[in-house]
Simulated scan of single mutants.
Amino acid sequence: MSFQAYIDNIQKKTGKSPDDFKNLAEEKGFLKNGELTVKATQITDWLKEEFELGHGHAMAIYASLKGKTE
């Protein structure tokens, strides 16, 4: 599955775009000045619990928060 397919599936499931997740991560203090302040595990645990994402999909959001787009 391509990175974009992961993002599309996440948006379909949650109604949230990568920018929405970025804003939520900033609100939670996980992201400051565009830089992650926590480890991947905290991000993935949050996404799994709050949005019921699987590990691969949570890692795709983590990657997008780190600035990866492909």
Rank of each mutant, 00 (worst) to 15 (best):
M1S: 15
S2D: 15
F3D: 13
F3S: 12
F3R: 08
Q4K: 13
Q4H: 12
Q4P: 03
A5Q: 14
A5R: 13
Y6S: 12
Y6G: 03
I7T: 12
I7L: 15
D8W: 06
N9I: 01
N9P: 09
N9H: 14
N9M: 11
Q11K: 11
Q11T: 11
Q11M: 09
K13S: 14
K13M: 10
G15A: 10
K16T: 01
K16C: 02
S17Y: 07
S17A: 08
S17E: 05
P18K: 01
P18N: 05
P18I: 00
P18Y: 03
D20R: 00
D20L: 00
D20I: 00
D20C: 05
D20H: 07
F21H: 03
F21L: 02
F21N: 01
K22D: 05
K22H: 09
K22N: 09
N23A: 14
N23Q: 13
L24I: 13
L24D: 06
A25H: 03
A25V: 01
E27F: 04
E27M: 06
E27P: 05
E27Y: 04
K28T: 01
K28N: 11
G29F: 07
G29R: 01
F30W: 04
L31F: 06
K32W: 05
K32A: 12
K32P: 05
K32S: 13
K32R: 11
N33G: 14
N33K: 12
N33S: 14
G34A: 09
E35N: 14
E35T: 07
L36D: 03
L36W: 03
L36I: 04
T37P: 13
T37I: 10
T37K: 15
V38K: 07
V38L: 08
V38H: 06
V38D: 03
K39H: 12
K39W: 06
A40T: 07
A40M: 09
A40D: 12
A40V: 05
T41Y: 14
I43S: 02
I43K: 01
I43V: 15
T44Q: 12
T44R: 10
D45S: 14
D45V: 01
W46Y: 15
W46N: 04
L47A: 08
L47E: 04
L47D: 02
L47Y: 04
K48G: 15
K48I: 00
K48R: 12
K48F: 10
K48Q: 15
E49F: 09
E49D: 15
E49L: 07
E49N: 14
E50P: 06
E50M: 07
E50Q: 14
E50T: 10
F51M: 02
F51N: 11
F51I: 00
E52W: 00
E52L: 08
L53M: 12
L53E: 11
L53F: 13
G54T: 08
G54Q: 13
G54S: 13
H55P: 09
H55V: 05
G56N: 13
G56Y: 12
G56F: 08
H57S: 14
A58V: 02
A58T: 02
A58D: 07
A58N: 05
M59D: 13
A60R: 01
A60Q: 03
A60M: 04
A60D: 06
A60N: 05
I61M: 08
I61L: 11
A63E: 14
A63R: 10
A63G: 13
A63K: 10
S64K: 02
S64P: 03
L65N: 02
L65D: 02
L65V: 02
L65F: 09
L65C: 08
K66T: 09
K68W: 09
E70M: 06
